[in-house]
Simulated scan of single mutants.
Amino acid sequence: MTVTGTTLVIGATGTTGSRTAAGLIAAGHHVRAASRSATRLPGTQPVRFDWYDPATFGDALAGAERVYLVPPVGDPDPAAVMLPFLRLARTAGIHRAVLLSSSAVPEGGPAVGEIHRALPGLFGEWAVLRPSWFMQNFTGTHAHARSIREDGAILTAAGTGRVGFVDADDIAAVAVRALTADRAPDTDLVLTGPEALSHDDIAAIVTEVTGRPVVHRSLTYAQLRDRLAAIVPPEFAAMLADMDRAIAEGAEDRTTDTVQRLTGRRPHSFRTVAERELRAVRDTSAIR
């Protein structure tokens, strides 16, 4: 692995972006950390970047050779802002692009699926990361995590369907490899954890780790769609509810060896992540 050039990390303050930036720095690479607030992260060069402000594109790209792409959150049509940026990136000298997508969105599918389809035609070196649902959805700032903390419940329309939930640390480890290896993957990579779990399984593990009772409550498709529409655009809410319905039908009941194949180690289990990230909750409960 050769240390050359600069990697632009878009969404550098986010769940995978911050971890990817840290992993690149730890491996000795130069990182330009792009975010709307131009937040300074240890060891990086901060730069302001906003998908909806093309005036920020040029400074972010200056001198960069590789880019980690996190699409604008909650936008049902990210291609409208991403494709002009990607064309500019190619002209500016970016030769490798790694895109964060989703296991639920195939090439040419809705939203970021259109960017997936376009990427190979824009860059000679590329990869599309298609992680399953993040384990951090239950430990961080996601609606599931808030619902766990506030109501002791996980609300989904996924029924008993199982998901190969994946640790954001593992996603970032693959991203670093895809960005810096001598040869780019030049393919899409479905990323999962080591086992497929239902939301009932997740609730049981969180209960055991924190000592606080957590349950999984099933909603109908319409109930989930309407609930989500209160916080995201209606089209995006419908797409997310469709994904839960697909989980209920078995679409995400799978695991892959991608993390181990690219990083040389097994992916982390949900119990490991819960122990690591919910330890404070458990310890606080023990004091009370």
Rank of each mutant, 00 (worst) to 15 (best):
T139H: 06
R146Y: 07
G159H: 02
R87V: 15
R117D: 13
L119M: 13
R96E: 06
G108A: 10
R87Y: 13
I148V: 14
V128I: 11
E125C: 03
E150I: 07
G93E: 15
V98D: 08
I94W: 07
G140C: 01
R130I: 00
A127W: 02
L155P: 00
A157M: 00
N137Q: 07
R162F: 02
S103Y: 12
G109L: 08
Q136D: 07
F165P: 05
L99Y: 15
V112G: 03
M135D: 09
P110L: 01
L129K: 05
G140M: 08
S102T: 09
G121R: 11
A157D: 00
V163L: 14
L119W: 11
N137F: 09
D151A: 12
S132A: 14
L122A: 10
G124D: 15
A143C: 02
R146W: 10
T91S: 11
A127M: 01
A111Y: 10
I94R: 00
H95A: 04
T160H: 02
E107P: 02
I154R: 01
A145S: 11
H95W: 05
P131L: 06
V105N: 09
A92L: 06
V98L: 09
T160E: 01
G140E: 09
A97P: 04
S147I: 14
A118Y: 03
A118S: 10
D151G: 03
T160Y: 00
A158R: 06
L119V: 15
M135W: 10
A153W: 04
Q136N: 08
R90I: 03
T141K: 01
G93D: 14
H144E: 15
Q136P: 05
A158N: 04
I115R: 01
A145R: 05
T91N: 07
I94G: 04
A143V: 14
F134R: 09
L88K: 15
A89G: 11
P110I: 00
N137D: 10
